[in-house]
Amino acid sequence: MPVDVQNMQKIFARPDSLTDAKSTYCPGCHHGILTRIIAQTIDELEVAERTVGIVPVGCAVFAYQWYHCDAIQAAHGRASAVATGVKRADPNLIVFSYQGDGDFASIGTAESIHAANRGENITVIFVNNQVYGMTGGEMAPTSLVGQKTTTTPQGRDPKLFGYPIRFSEMIAQLDAPVYVTRQALYDTKHIKEATKAIKKAFTNQVEKKGYSLVEVLAACPTNWKMKPIDANKHIAKVVEKTYQLGDLVNRG
């Protein structure tokens, strides 16, 4: 049967807020899925013309290329402070920061906690893949006990390097944040749930409710030295034991 191209229904397309710039992420990395979800959310909320993305240092340093919106590249760890500056300068802007575990939970610890504690009306996307991807697979503050990295070649020994830091749980102790949640992207079900969470985190800001944090457990097959499919299984079977999924604060 000939295909009726004229009357074909388009059921899946690139979100308007997502550019066609080439991805710099590795195969099997979850950053790409997350980038798409954020772009889709910006589309759905119709806020592209007033959105400013704050991108970090690390694998996502090029993230400003992938959104059809204004963007600022921040110094390592300072994205939440930069987001604060933008939002206070113009509260009508929709400001999100996109930060990895080294950025958000190590070098940016003070900025991350205090932006949350002030209840800045911003959306923070915190990508936890338990490793420094860009610099060569070093230990992250979130690396699991026993995890082998290039700086913990024998595995992370808590006696020497401490335990994996559950940063979202720390943020959840504060009075100001309205929404703190941990999500994953290793299968369709979790992608759908993460999409809902990200939409909620942005909607909270549009509705001027306050600070929202979405932590996303992400795979780094390259530095974990796993096949992408095994990396996905690793999150479900191992990573989730240290980092439980679900809402930690939901005052929305």
Binding site: I72, A75, R78, V82, G85, V86, R88, D90
Partner: peptide, 11 residues
């Protein structure tokens, strides 16, 4: 870095 953000926003 807050200055960096506010300056970026044009104020």
């Amino acid at each position: 870095n807050m200055v960096y953000g506010a300056a970026s926003a044009g104020v």
